[in-house]
Amino acid sequence: MTHALDIQQVTRSFGRTAAVDNVSFQVPENSIVGLLGRNGAGKTTLMSMLAGQDRPDTGTVTVLGDKVFERANTLSGISYVRDNQRYPDNYMLHHVLRIAPAFKPNWSRELADELVDGFRIPAKTKITKMSRGQLSSVAIVLSLASRAPITLLDEPYLGLDVTGRALFHRVLLDDYQTHPRTIVLSTHLIEESAALLDRVVIMDKGRIVVDDETENARDGAFVASGQTDAVGRLLVNHRILETHTVGALASVTAAGTLDDTLRQSARVAGVQLARASLQELVSAYGVNESTSETKEKVRA
């Protein structure tokens, strides 16, 4: 299996905080990967390094089998628009559409036109005066019409309305099928994109906590809900990720796989079990260890 992206023991610090802390992972070619986690988890820093816009302090970043920082050949195969992308003064949409083909060998004018039309991006508005949703639309046009073998999408949904999000999904899937590429997508709208993702990489505090195929990752955790003490007894040997309580009821996300033994004991104890959704999984991994006294309540 060829790895489109290969990150080995990468660390990147700003001042004293390690934004990315000794991270290693690979992304198989022509797949869609979700890069998930809370704000400040290190997603954007990681993407910057994958796009050659930043360099790791230690470790190696390999993209399409080659180094990336200051490598023109590798860079021409990567598309990465930041969530807060800056554009030159007085830029309007047509400036972007005119210059992109000079850098992007696979640029598709038809696809760009289709997206501009679908998103209703205003032609005569300066980009600096655009709304958040319009900025996201411009970024999506630039990202998808580039048809780059490596496409990094950083929070592509910000400010997009429901029609825009549906258009983005449809065009992404359609164009991905006719022009396969490796897509890394970071987002907080997890439920909305979950079905697109072949793999997920979940980050927290600069580290990777989950890196697996989406379905396997979801098999790695479950939600148990019922009477607080019954749930506590059932999960006494499980690692608890997140706890919600109301009155005498608790809903607990725990690490582990649902097996028949567990289902059997849950039925006896009157506890409901369900696979964790991707969103529950990401939320659970983002909970601070220090605020886990509710976990003790369940344990007690």
Partner: peptide, 20 residues
């Protein structure tokens, strides 16, 4: 000033190297 200050981030996004 602007040819570097605001154009540089966009040039990197398009895939230019710093040297280029």
């Amino acid at each position: 000033v602007q040819s570097v200050a605001t154009t540089f981030p966009f040039a990197l996004t398009l895939g230019s190297t710093r040297r280029s």
